[in-house]
Design a protein around this nucleic acid. Structure first.
Lengths: 231, 231
DNA sequence: CAGGGAGTATGATGGGTGTCAAGCCGGGCG
DNA sequence: CGCCCGGCTTGACACCCATCATACTCCCTG
């Protein structure tokens, strides 16, 4: 019984949702969590499913996406460790119009909605953290909407690259693309073809260069900044 | 002292945020509210302002919009009575990158952030209602993002018209456009010119017709549905 | 190891729509 | 009352970008 307990503990401790709780409170929360393994490509739920749990990502990443009437996929968001899904069913009772797929093997902490409701009432700070997270997501989505409407693909791509975690390297900053290019294209509201073309343009202009699988080094940060929404 | 109290009371009672509270609790909340009048065209706050209050719309409507680097306005959302703004500053401490302008004369109930925090801790249901509202907004914004990316202007316009509150009339359904057409265009992620053209197309196709100021009657609901995202 | 599917790159092409420009109309303010 | 500004419409034009098609590479699986 030692191992699963330790797992729960980790899950609860790392998550912003439960930050600020005392050790004992965290243990109480952990007792309600059901740890679950996920394998790459696995669908946690599909559109219209009855999601009755709040799922907190422990390790691995999830891709949330819609599928349009024509079957085309639209990436909504990518969940990293500490992020959660399933709150909207919990809050509004609505069925999701999107799906969640594991991008890689990983693990989740799953809570039943009823337990979450009790936790929120017992520990208002959990509700406040959820509010903060939803507010952050809303702002991010509004920003993406604005950029799709007002910026062309190259500007959105420049924005995206500049927003990635970067590492100093010999000839500038090096970033690792966290997603398949087709998914990045979808996130940016464009197609893989357009993304490929624009990335080549940036390379031809000497602003960036690609080496290897998903490794991009930014040679001219100011050049990219000028292309992007500026600010 | 009777009149202002009655105003506060109304404000609190009508708002989903404070639904489910007992009479005494509502009175307690009302005591913290500061009623404020707004006049058409007045800016409640501008980008970068220090918003230290949660504002609940009592009467009238507000337009939330961003202004791009080129000065072009992008409508984010329209607030109706019962809706609120200012929660993001309260939750994350961030300055807004958007502005709020009154679409018409009206009134607000304003709460100081500190009071809101206390209220949420005291009455968890308030926090839950805020969560529900943010979750709803997030879903709406994600839906708009998806539609801008995957639907053309005519489909978005059809969607929009079908989503408006309608009244049965002689030759179909009649809706009243709740916004200036330029604002509707912005909301749909397009330009006034394109909106005007597409609306004319719908009229030429016999699907809709315009009479008077912002009055549109939908002659062929199924025709519009076929144009829109279907479902 | 060979097959196959998915992801990606590149080219050609057409269409939707943003942009610029001009004109119209209505309402608000002086 | 009449000016004038802002919203709206219509037209012409260009261009970005989605689409279709093809080909290449890599990884995974049988």
């Amino acid at each position: 019984m030692e191992l699963p307990l330790a797992q729960d503990d980790l899950c609860v401790a790392r998550v912003p949702l439960f930050r600020g709780l005392t050790r004992t409170e965290q243990e109480h929360v952990a007792a309600l969590a059901r740890p679950t393994r996920i394998t790459r490509g696995e669908a946690l739920y599909i559109p219209g499913a009855d999601v009755s749990q709040l799922m907190v990502v422990h390790t691995g990443r999830l891709k949330i996406s819609r599928v349009g009437v024509d079957g085309r996929e639209q990436v909504v968001r990518v969940l990293e460790p500490g992020d959660f899904v399933g709150e909207s069913a919990f809050l509004t009772g609505a069925r999701p119009d999107h799906q969640a797929v594991a991008l890689e093997d990983g693990s989740l902490c799953v809570f039943r909605h009823g337990d979450v409701a009790a936790l929120v009432r017992e520990h208002p700070s959990i509700g406040l953290h959820m509010l903060q997270e939803l507010s952050r997501r809303l702002e991010e989505t509004e920003a993406r909407l604005a950029s799709v409407v007002s910026l062309d693909v190259s500007a959105r791509l420049a924005d995206y690259l500049l927003g990635l975690p970067a590492r100093r390297s010999a000839d500038g900053l090096t970033v690792r693309l966290p997603l398949a290019k087709k998914d990045i294209a979808s996130l940016l509201g464009t197609t893989p073809e357009s993304l490929s073309r624009q990335l080549r343009r940036l390379a031809e202009a000497g602003l960036v260069s690609e080496h290897g699988p998903g490794l991009v080094t930014i040679a001219d940060v100011d050049g990219l900044l000028a292309l992007s929404g500026d600010d």
